[in-house]
Write a protein that binds this DNA or RNA. Sequence first.
DNA 1: CTGAATCCTAAGTGATACTG
DNA 2: CAGTATCACTTAGGATTCAG
Lengths: 119, 119
Amino acid sequence: MEEQITRSFNIPAEATLEVIGGKWKLLILCHLNCGPGPKRTSELKKAIPDITQKMLIQQLRELEEDGIITRTVYNQVPPKVVYEMSELGNSLQFILDQLGEWGEQYIRRREWKSSCSEG
Amino acid sequence: MEEQITRSFNIPAEATLEVIGGKWKLLILCHLNCGPGPKRTSELKKAIPDITQKMLIQQLRELEEDGIITRTVYNQVPPKVVYEMSELGNSLQFILDQLGEWGEQYIRRREWKSSCSEG
DNA sequence: CTGAATCCTAAGTGATACTG
DNA sequence: CAGTATCACTTAGGATTCAG
């Protein structure tokens, strides 16, 4: 069950994308970043309504395995599980910001181009 | 044939990943960056032996459509097509570097952790 | 509330053969 | 040399159901 996958990359940058490239991971990290403190599973689900429960858990697990976030379980009824950015996760912050900035510029540029072709 | 896809993103950073997230795109951009001037299709194929011709062309097309690279066709026999980073592509350089740096650190960290568990 | 398990589809990828 | 077309395969992602 513990199928250990050895991932190899041609260039280091690919390792980074492997970590943050999941379909919902940016969004999840984004929500874990906004506001301090850990977030409950249900909070994340509420914050990202379009994600299925399966994908939410799956992406969270991958982020956890990659050491980006931490998962804390409270043994109580009803169950309570919270996720939080790890130190390694916080080291991603700068890259996340850069990705966001470039993306903004890119989107603006495309809107500008398409508005021209409409003329 | 010209199927126009409207891509929507929850956060701008996702747009960036959409552009550079293709399986071979980082590698292609990497090779277009190393050394000045444009690269021929066959040069890229030689530089990235594992990629199939289909994937090479496909990823190049997507990069071109996204404005990251330029494609120049010389009308001659035998055909000659060269690809080159565009201005927009060059604006990616910083992010590419950051992704690489973080990836390096991440890989080192994982090697360190696995060497510990080997005991 | 959290999340595991199953089944299913769509998309991505690859091998191969073919065209100008 | 550069690119297309087709088929086969793998995988990510999603709907649903069940469990502690």
